[in-house]
Structure formats: C-alpha cells, structure tokens
Design a protein around this nucleic acid. Sequence first.
DNA 1: TTCTTCCTCCAAAACGTTTCGGATTCTTTC
DNA 2: GAAAGAATCCGAAACGTTTTGGAGGAAGAA
Lengths: 342, 342
Amino acid sequence: MTTIKDIAKVAGVSVTTVSRALNGYPDVSEKTRQKIIEIAKQLNYSPNTLARSLVMNKSKTIGLLVSGMNHSAIKDNFTFEVLTGINDYIAKTDYDLILFSTNSTKQREKTYSQLCRERRVDGVILQGIKTDDPYLTEVVESDIPCVLIDIPIQSDKVGYVTTDNVLGAKKAVQHLIELGHENIAMMNGHDYAFVSKQRLEGFRQAMEEANVAINDDWIVNGEFSEEVAEKKALELFSKHREITAIFCASDLMALGVVKALKQMGLSVPDDVSVVGYDDILLASYVSPSLTTIAQNRFQMGYEAASMLVEMLEGKEAKVVMLRTQLIVRESTKKNQLLKGRM
Amino acid sequence: MTTIKDIAKVAGVSVTTVSRALNGYPDVSEKTRQKIIEIAKQLNYSPNTLARSLVMNKSKTIGLLVSGMNHSAIKDNFTFEVLTGINDYIAKTDYDLILFSTNSTKQREKTYSQLCRERRVDGVILQGIKTDDPYLTEVVESDIPCVLIDIPIQSDKVGYVTTDNVLGAKKAVQHLIELGHENIAMMNGHDYAFVSKQRLEGFRQAMEEANVAINDDWIVNGEFSEEVAEKKALELFSKHREITAIFCASDLMALGVVKALKQMGLSVPDDVSVVGYDDILLASYVSPSLTTIAQNRFQMGYEAASMLVEMLEGKEAKVVMLRTQLIVRESTKKNQLLKGRM
DNA sequence: TTCTTCCTCCAAAACGTTTCGGATTCTTTC
DNA sequence: GAAAGAATCCGAAACGTTTTGGAGGAAGAA
C-alpha cells in the first residue's frame, strides 16, 4: 500500500510537500504539484483516512444510532425510510456513515459516549430510542454534536427534527369529530415515547376544543404493536360498544384494531371509524384502506443529516418541525348513529 | 480526552504496561493490572480506535456497499431486510458497519478499492449492483475480502450468498403448468442482473421438461419496475390474448402486471394467473394476494455477514445457496380454458 | 549594493496506540 | 551464596498523516 512517503521518495521532495501539494495548499509550485499528482496516480495512492483522522482529530464519519432495526420492523419501515433520507444527504458530502449496531446487550456494555469516542465520530444521529434509554441523558451531557429524531431535547450541541405530533393528532381527531363522532377512543403507543405523549395531547386538545367529553377508560396503550393493539382493542370494544371511532397513534396499531373489530363482527367504517398515524405503505393497500396522518420520514432523515453536517461546520443546533397531512381513505365515515338520531 | 499516557502517568508505569494490562497480556502482575483498570475507569478512558487501527493495520470495520437505497425502494425493501440481517450478525461481533453511500456520481469519482482503502475496511459486503458495474471487476482484482449478495462470482477472497433462482423460477412455472396452463409468458427484470438470467433459465427448464412450447415473444423485460412492467404487460396482453399465465421475476412487477390486466378488464386469476417472485410484504395484502416464490432476505444478509467475519478470521471464501419456497395464494388458478376443453 | 518581501520547500513534532527487544527484580535451585 | 530462570516492567520505534516554524533563494525596493 503506497504512502505519502513513497511518493516523496520518487518525486525527490519531502513528505510535507507531498501532503501540501495533494491538499491544495498554495505554497507549492504548480510544476511540482503536477509532478506529485502524476506520481500519486501512477502509484495508485489513496490516503489513509485513519492516519489523517488521528492527527486532525476529526474522522469525517457520522454515527448512526438506531434502535429498531430488527426483523419485526419490516411492516412499519420507519427506520429504513429515515435511513434512506440520511444516506441521500450524506452521499452529497464527504462524510461516511457508521452504523452502530446496538442490540440490547451491547447497549448495556458500552455507554453512548464510549461508542462515539472509540470510533471518534464527528457527530451522531439518534433514532428510535425510548425516553427512558440511558443513552438519552448521556447525549446531552456529552459534547458530541448530535441530532435526534422525534425526541424534543435541545441544547447547545443537540438539535432535533420531528413532526408536529400535537397538530397531527389534532387533525386526525378533528376529522373524526367533524364526521359526527362523539364517543372517541384512542389507542396510544407507550409511555416511553415522546410522540405518544404529544399525540395524546393533540387528542385532548381536539376533544376539548370541540367540547367532546374525554373518557379516560377509552385511552389504552398498544405498545406500537399490531398484536398488542389487537388484543387491547378486543377488550376495549367488548366492554364499550358505544365507541364509534378510534384514533390510533400508529398505522400498525390501526391494522391490529381493524383486525379486532372484524373478529367481533363489527364493520369498519360502518360501525367504527378508525384513523391511524404514519401513512405506512400498507395503509393504502389494506382493505378498508386507512385514513391516516402522513409524515415524510424520508425528509426527516434528510433534514437530520443536513442539520448535523451544518452543525459540524459551525452552525448552531436547531429544531426542525415538519408538516403532517391528513389523508382520508376508507376507514372513516360519518357517524351512523348520528344519522339515525337526526 | 484521556489517553493511555494519562493513565500511565497517574499509575506511575509506562504506556507499554498500560497497553498490555488493558489488553490482557500475561506479563503484567495482577496487582498493577487492577490498579490500571481502576484508574482507566476513573479517568473515563476509552481507547482511540483510529490509533489502534493505524498501528494494527486492521480497522474492525466492514464496509457495506449497497446500491438501491433510494426513495423508490420502499415498496420492495429488499435492501433493508438484507441490511437488517447483516446488522443482526454484526451486532454479535466486535465489528462495526460503515455504510458507503454510493450515489451514481460519487461512484464514478472514486473506485471501489479507493473507497475501501481510504477507510481501511477489513472486508466488504456488496449488494444490489448490476452485472455491468465497474466495481464488480475491481472486486475480484482487489484482494479485500468480500462477499457478494446474489452475484455468482467467486475467487480466493470473494464468496457469495444467493438463493437457488433457477430452481425457484422452475417451481413457479411448474406450479402454473400443473394448473393446466400452456400459454405462459414471462416478465423478466433486465439483462444486467444475474438473477434475471437465472430465473429465465428456470423458466426454460420447467417449460422444456414439461414439453410446453416457449414463445420468445412472450418474454419481456420489465426492468424490475412496477410501472414499466405495467406498460409492457399492456402491450403484451393486447397483442396476445391467448396467454393465460405469466411468471414475473419480481413481486413488484407482478403488481404492475395485475394492474395492467385489471385495466384491460381481465380478471386475475380467472382469466390470467400471475405468479411473482420475492414474497414482499405487499404480496399477501394486495387483492388478489400474490402467489410467489419466497426468499429469506434477512437470512441472506445474516449469512453474508457471517461468512465475511469468518473469512476475516482466516476461513475460506465459500458459496451459500439458500432455499426458496413456493407460496400459493389467490393470483393463480386452474386454467379455465382447459376446463372448457375437458 | 543591501534590505525586505515573496515564493518554495523542508525537518521535526504530534496524534494515540501496539510491539519488539531488552532490562530489572524476584524466586528458585544447586 | 551464586547462577539460572521466571516474572515484571520499560524505552523506543512504528503506523501514515498534518502542521508549525522556519530556511534558502529569488525578486523587488531603497
């Protein structure tokens, strides 16, 4: 493997000159620069990033700490879409991505900052970690530039990108209310996700502003899982047949809810309206297709990468909040009971 | 950032001893080892991988060169599932993954081996590149350990993992033949994919062994794209209404074909049977659900990672061929014309 | 002519590790 | 008590870069 020394030797100059020639410094004559470049090509030279990073104290790599890259994430490929967005931006820069594979066991062994410092990443993007994750506190404490996805924590060195979950949920619930529903339930995720809290808040706001009573028994947690949501929905609807609409904090859970309702012989949307969140691919393919809140996950990744790179170039950490969009499909409908009453 | 020197200073020993203590060499007394470990903890030391890699001449990173991580890959998330498998295995080792973001422009700028040598990766996994990609020739020429996914090239340092595409396609077509179909078309991918060639070969074998005539006009390329396949299917079926079954080299194209048939007022499976390949998530959700050949993409990634790590530990490059499985759903049916004839 | 300035170039230090070859001390053996 | 051997430790080189501070010479200014 040819080094800068080899080039220096055959060019008859010092390694300093080679380095400076190759890096475009002005204090080397054009003649020798051309000679050096020529020789470098001939010797098939490529610089050793490790050595460079070591001395420059920056590695031109950004770490990607995702949790939720597992077998079960295929239906809801949030992670992948975000990753695609990140990759898309990074491809235009001279950074490379390093993927920290954090299964749960490894996570316990090495701390967040250990991971980052060992590999000397210049910055990190975090996605999919829960609010009780020990990494989270480390992130703010450590001084490594970092951008979070869907986690509203900000400091000097950490920014985040998210969507307006409160407004998104509000739009979903308002849609139900406009359809004449009054007995509205909510299938939330779990308490360890910021988005859950925010979507619950949006739910409350929409209900209160429309003067619709909130029944706390009708708010249950589906753990963002299709199966759990299905089970919980079975319980919920067998106890409370009066519910005519349900807002789910994810499409995946909405799928589970629809399954449960079908099992009980209830029709979606004739008996119960269901609205999801995410607009996953399946949402438009299942039957009935899902009314849902769309968020552009690709863009989230793209913005996150963009922000991080900007931060590495000296700009300040900031907050990016993306728009969501209500997409009305087949799973929601005018309240049938209401029609009867009128 | 604390270094080995800092530890040496407070422990009152040399850096050599610190290094050897931390790395478990036997020529340091248990007493000083404990002392050093204790101090390292207190100083919150984490080793600098860059420095280590530089001197040891291996980086404990493996490169991931995927093409096809783009916006349009979301339906058919082959790449993501493979990636998940790779990540799953890698998480159990002390390697990290570095994702080479190769959009087409960057690809032209830097050669394959340049990418690898700059980052000093120990090995590479390649996925999703076409047969005419310049990287491919470089791979075999370079002496970097490498495993390919779905590309049957082997040498001293390069192995591959794939599925038995010939057999898979054969099973699909045999299924159609068993259903009584004789006028069978094929929607292939494109000429720059190995799997296309192999699946075509499987198609031919099945037809020949069953003594069913092959009509070369009925074999068209859909570029692995839903839209292109739709267009091509429209052309094909408007010219040749006698076709009663079609084998598609991917589920995505099968979706396009089904769309085209619906547009033409033809029923799947009553008028035309369609079988796909891949068993993507959508296959079981669309209506009619797709009969298809399932391949375990997660396992492909897992096996690839496993093979590469083994190679890095001295074992030989090898070939892994995984099984496929015919999954019969709603898009295939007994040939109706045949029924009439009987 | 001499002094200053600019253009090229270079030696050496630094980054944080690992490892080779030896040096010291301690224990054992005769 | 001395020689031998084992157990511990260490100095220095090496990995491939970048960068600092200056050296040498040529050109311009006085």
